[in-house]
């Protein structure tokens, strides 16, 4: 009797073990880095204010902007005639906030070409052409007062950044 019960228990144990212990299959997904645009000429639609602000904020802080701040910012930009001046002020405000995710000036000076390519990809979503690399490389090397903040402000306030 005991032997018979042990046999059943042993069979149940085997069934439970074989059913519950399946090897876990690890699946992971990734995103390949691609340039959205081959050329700036493909950008023909202006970003609206909400798009501009939320894209810029996410770009600089690597986190989404809150709806209330987005709403306030939209109103404030709408209330100033010179959009370029308004955007420059907005950026100078962002540069004073904690949590900003931008490279250091040392990185820019020591890796100028890489910095330029990364900046073009980050803001313009495309590779710079040779003349663009040449201009910025030369400009950054020859102007000690050119900082990352100034480069980023120039990109974010540029006409091209206002289009997609």
């Amino acid at each position: 009797m005991i032997m018979r019960n042990f046999k059943y228990i042993f069979i149940c144990y085997i069934i439970i073990c074989t059913c519950s212990c399946k090897r876990k299959v690890e699946v992971s997904y990734g995103v390949n880095s691609v340039d959205v645009y081959d050329s700036k000429a493909q950008k023909i639609k202006p970003k609206n204010e909400a798009e501009y602000i939320s894209i810029l904020y996410t770009n600089l802080f690597q986190s989404p902007i809150s709806p209330s701040i987005l709403y306030q910012t939209q109103n404030v930009l709408y209330s100033i005639g010179d959009q370029s001046a308004a955007k420059e002020m907005l950026l100078s405000n962002y540069f004073n906030l904690p949590g900003l995710n931008i490279p250091s000036n040392d990185y820019m000076r020591n890796n100028t070409e890489a910095f330029i390519i990364e900046t073009y990809k980050r803001f313009m979503l495309r590779q710079p052409n040779q003349s663009e690399i040449y201009f910025f490389k030369k400009y950054i090397e020859e102007n000690s007062e050119a900082t990352v903040e100034m480069v980023y402000t120039a990109f974010a306030a540029s006409d091209e950044y206002g289009f997609y």
Binding site: K40, I69, Q72, T73, V76, S79, E88, M89, L90, S92, N93, F95, N96, L97, S131, E132, F135, F136, Y139, N143, E145, A146, T147, E149, M150, V151, T153, A154, F155, A157, S158, D159, E160, F163
Partner: peptide, 30 residues
């Protein structure tokens, strides 16, 4: 406006010159 603009950094004209130079290049090429 106070919440969005008043905390901005005050750059001098000298500090801003490179930004305007670079922006001008970007705008001309666009």
């Amino acid at each position: 406006g106070k919440a969005i603009l008043s905390n901005g950094k005050a750059y001098t004209q000298q500090e801003l010159r490179p930004m305007y130079d670079m922006k001008s290049f970007l705008d001309q090429s666009f």
